[in-house]
Design a protein around this nucleic acid. Structure first.
Lengths: 205, 205
DNA sequence: CATTATAGAATGAACGTTCAATCTATATTG
DNA sequence: CAATATAGATTGAACGTTCATTCTATAATG
């Protein structure tokens, strides 16, 4: 049997609305933070009534949780992509510019920092963030291990974890840097990052 | 003429009270965030009435601004210390463990992330944070330049800025890492960081 | 016509802030 | 040195507002 999906109704009408709320809410959160944003603001930005929002989300926290969960899927995709590359070292060095650009974008950085600050005190958000991070770390560690093995280096789990954490700290740290120093020289950072990534992946134990 | 100050009243009694509020508020902010913390909570933690808080601070934002300003003084002291070291490279590598420890402390990290997230949207906080960061960068750039010159390397302003930003991103990035991965292996990170700092300071253009 | 989508008013709690009143301790006076 | 005056510290209740959430009623849909 075949079902025509010319307008994406079916179950997706509700999902469209949910997405509408998510996008509007993310925008508000970026500008005012989670706890500085009211349901009234979100409803206005989403173009619907306050009451209607509660048709799609149990409460404000559920909106936050949904945004966080979706956002982390993005990161998982990225690590998976990297893993699929032929020459991992070259791929990482080439794609460093993307990673730097992404993390330096003030919009991205603002929301990411809001999320991690919230995770520091909200267990529900922390659980989501940590589960996704665990997956990313595992993927990145596996990627680096195969690249290192191919180059003849055999690393301990701890050494591998140290490399993963350092790489993560570098890129995620840029989210903080772009707030603290909005005039930051992106090209200069990319150059140093490339060199550091090369050194990191080539270092002998 | 001489004035006896046997009891430290005069101007310092008020300052004691202000400090009391600062400490209590910082604690609340760590646990609930700036906008998740009420004046009632702060007053309870500080052991004084809500109204009395307004004797020492114009409003809630002023408490935030005061905490941020004080906290950044701490960082400025650290860069100044580093600058005074004889062998800068060795000093940085040796003291890396302190920097890692400090940034991985969940209490520190939580408040720092709260501050930078607030700076992303609150101009008053942003001004304070950016002014302090500018000073830190200048100090660190000067320190690295002299160390590099002594080793025979002449770097452009941009290259120097890239190194400074990368170092800052690494250490500040740990604040994010400790939230995302509370089980992070500190010793492994220190080892990789030391190697990276060495490479960074020794690299040929 | 039944079900779902939507709007908007209603509710009660919590918020930041203000304020009149009280308490405490020092200074002034007789 | 007792009595009084004065200033500043401190309180907790009160204010108006805003908040998240719920309730009720109407419109759209199939």
């Amino acid at each position: 049997m075949s079902v025509t999906l010319d307008h994406p109704s079916e179950a997706s009408r509700a999902e469209t609305r949910r997405a509408q709320v998510r996008v509007a809410a993310a925008d508000c959160f970026r500008q005012h933070g989670f706890h500085g944003t009211s349901i009234a603001q979100i409803s206005k930005a989403a173009g619907m009534s306050t009451g209607h929002i509660y048709h799609y989300f149990e409460n404000k926290e559920a909106i936050i949780a949904d945004i966080v969960a979706r956002d982390l899927d993005r990161l998982l995709t990225l690590t998976a992509e990297l893993r699929a590359a032929g020459d991992v070292k070259s791929a990482m060095i080439e794609r460093a510019v993307e990673g730097v650009e992404d993390n330096l974008d003030p919009g991205t950085a603002g929301l990411q920092l809001e999320i991690v600050a919230e995770a520091a005190r909200n267990p529900r958000v922390a659980d989501i963030v940590r589960a996704a991070d665990r997956q990313c770390r595992a993927s990145l560690a596996a990627t680096i291990r195969t690249q290192r093995l191919a180059a003849g280096h055999q690393d301990s789990e701890a050494a591998l974890a140290g490399m993963v954490e350092t790489l993560a700290a570098m890129f995620e740290g840029l989210q903080i840097r772009t707030i603290r120093n909005p005039d930051l020289d992106q090209a200069a950072v990319v150059q140093v990052f490339r060199r550091m990534i090369h050194d990191l992946l080539s270092q002998t134990p």
